[in-house]
Nucleic acid binder design. Structure first.
Lengths: 200, 200
DNA sequence: CTCTTAGATAAGCACGCGCTTAGATTATAA
DNA sequence: TTATAATCTAAGCGCGTGCTTATCTAAGAG
């Protein structure tokens, strides 16, 4: 586990509402252009209401980033089917991951594009979670190569591409015909099989 | 042409240096977290030195975004080889586009992730340029389908994926084995052929 | 019913923000 | 050389920033 066990997201109801309000504000205007007063205003609270829950604006961003990346990792792990063949496992993971990125596109935008605002220690925890998520995909790619299901000259490169495709969803979603989760995850499942050269 | 002809990038040397300094600052800290004083400090100039060239911080961002997207469009158009077959055309375009995204990853980061800070009129101009760039790729995809070189059930989706892959480079680059432009563009050329189901 | 405590508010501090103005300096060209 | 314009700096304005402090409120424990 890359993340230290002492990183805990406040379970208080008010803190959770603040994270949600901050996600919307950060996604719309960017972290640096969002003021703590704007976040409070979304909840009809005073500007000081954040501070009993988070000791700084950066700390709030960190809580959002940690929760989000831990959530994404869990989603990917639960989508994996250890007893199935690599083709089934890959499509299951990518379907679910792409769907999550679409359904949580505002959250995803914040936790993937605003990481430079984190202090180094916090940043390192987040990149650890991200590495764990990539590892799940990489293992399935390697497995498919070993079993002969996939034809891949560069496993690292293809894994990079698979993650890159999914992570970039939050930049353009929603657009075109892909607002429905099913349309999107079917497209991405197909794309993933093409990338690994699966016979289908 | 989507962009109005009256959008002109200042050709003054000082203005160009300011754009470069701003790109580095915005890429590192984000638009909202970057101050006009920081940009000036990078050039050893006074905080007011920007204003003879750009009437606001937003105007400077717009100049950067316009120049960058116009540049990218030009690169893609020049990489296209109208007389060649679709396979050659696609790999040429993607090679060059991916390479540009890597070599200009700081610039790309700014012009792709900070667009929400633009006022609506400026934003519309930029999305027009982006649409033109996508169009170049889409036409080649359609051509390859028509000629039988490509096997693609969803041309819009595959075009989206091709653009998405390239645009996302600025988020992770440089990392892994892909710091060299050649390694990267070879990977992306291969990925693009896999995505369109080309026989190779 | 009182004590404790978590969570909210009102008020405001010190500071840095984008941007303006007035004037000095430099480059251009007649 | 001198007029003209472009571009810089010094100084600073008005305001909004993240955050702090002191105080109040409400809910739960004994």
């Amino acid at each position: 586990m890359s993340a230290p066990e002492n990183t805990v997201i406040s379970s208080s109801k008010a803190a959770a509402r603040m994270r949600e309000a901050a996600i919307e504000a950060f996604a719309e205007n960017g972290y640096g252009s969002t003021t703590t007063r704007q976040i409070a205003a979304r909840l009809d609270m005073s500007p000081a209401a954040m501070y009993p829950h988070y000791k700084s604006k950066e700390d709030l961003l960190y809580a959002i980033a940690y929760e989000g990346h831990a959530f994404a990792l869990q989603v990917v792990r639960e989508a994996d089917l250890p007893d199935a063949d690599a083709t089934t496992r890959l499509t299951s993971i990518i379907r679910r991951f792409a769907q999550w990125q679409a359904e949580n596109h505002r959250r995803a935008r914040v936790i993937q594009y605003e990481l430079t605002a984190l202090e180094p220690g916090h940043y390192r925890v987040i990149t650890g979670l991200r590495r764990d998520t990539t590892r799940v995909v990489r293992d399935v790619v390697d497995l498919g190569i070993a079993s002969g299901e996939f034809t891949v000259p560069d496993a690292e490169g293809v894994t990079l591409a698979l993650m890159s495709l999914c992570v970039d969803i939050c930049r353009w979603y929603p657009a075109g015909r892909y607002h429905e989760p099913d349309t999107l995850s079917s497209l991405y499942a197909d794309l993933s099989l093409r990338l690994v050269g699966a016979v289908h």
